[in-house]
């Protein structure tokens, strides 16, 4: 078991003929993900890496039975691509595109809710259930199958953490990059619950960063609903106030959303917080014993 993606994932790649889309379609296929098709308006009938390309998501779903879609289209077209996937009955959409206007996402959300479509991202690296399916741009070789569920707002920091876990022999059930945008799909609370319900997951790593109050809310949720051990790390402990450090989420304004407050919120509910990334494996070992 794992969450969200597994051997039953039948993946579509929207924007498969673009530079990133074609590159990562090949990478995901090589990892063993069941990539059943691609979508690129006007390129229907061609193939990329042996993967059939369709003009519309609807046609692709009809022909392949796809249940998951990953989006690589340019940012200003991303909201429409998400809606197209949802309309065609895709149950899980992963939006990699970076720089999507916030109000585009605000307008998309009610429709996804109505259709019951789950969204991850935008501006995220995707997710992986090691040895089952890679749906994203994560470097598959650093992951190891195991029992730790991981969620993170950042891409490369996820790789760093996974690398630390894997080199200490600690495998992962599923690792999810939720993205750093202000309005995004699945977030800590939904994923915490999924990991809680997943029998394979024995412990959870939550990697947060400064800005917003999602970590504080996660802390409260953990206290009320999560019985599995959780370990956390917060990036941006040294960030100067008011500066935006790359992610829209990572901005401290007026004393809210600081690393200190988030760490305090976690520690209050018994979640161990690593001060530096290399502490994570030891903390996980401690809580899993």
């Amino acid at each position: 078991m794992s969450i969200l993606v597994n051997q039953n994932t039948k993946l579509l790649v929207q924007g498969i003929t673009g530079r990133d889309g074609s590159f990562h379609a090949g990478k995901m296929k090589a990892y063993g993900t069941n990539v059943v098709g691609g979508v690129s308006p006007g390129k229907g009938g061609s193939t990329v890496d042996g993967i059939p390309v369709f003009n519309t998501v609807e046609a692709a779903v009809k022909a392949t039975g796809a249940n998951t879609s990953i989006i690589f289209v340019p940012a200003h077209l991303a909201a429409d691509a998400i809606l197209e996937a949802s309309e065609a009955g895709i149950g899980l959409v992963i939006a990699i595109s970076e720089g999507v206007p916030t109000l585009d996402m605000v307008k998309v959300m009610p429709y996804l809710a109505k259709k019951g479509t789950k969204l991850i991202g935008p501006n995220c690296p995707g997710l992986i259930s090691p040895d089952e399916a890679l749906v994203g741009i994560l470097p598959g070789n650093i992951f190891l199958k195991g029992n730790v569920g991981l969620m993170s707002r950042s891409g490369t920091l996820t790789y760093e953490m996974v690398y630390q876990l894997t080199s200490n022999g600690i495998g992962q059930s599923t690792c999810v990059g939720i993205g750093g945008d202000p309005v995004a799909g699945l977030y800590y609370l939904e994923l915490l619950q999924m990991f809680q319900d997943d029998p394979e997951t024995k412990a959870i790593v939550l990697i947060g960063e400064i800005g917003g109050d999602a970590e504080e809310r996660a802390a409260q949720y953990i206290q009320e609903h999560i019985t599995k051990p959780v370990v956390a790390f917060i990036a941006g402990q040294s960030a100067p106030p008011g500066k935006r450090m790359g992610h829209a989420g990572a901005i401290i304004s007026s004393g809210s959303g600081t690393a200190e407050e988030k760490i305090k919120a976690f520690e209050k509910v018994g979640v161990k917080v690593a001060k530096i990334p290399s502490e994570i494996p030891d903390l996980i070992k401690q809580v899993m014993e």
């Binding site: 707002r153 996820t158 760093e160 750093g180 990697i207 990036a235 790359g246 992610h247």
Partner: peptide, 8 residues
């Protein structure tokens, strides 16, 4: 490379 890793 990457905002999160840069912050960390």
């Amino acid at each position: 490379n990457g905002a999160g890793l840069a912050m960390a």
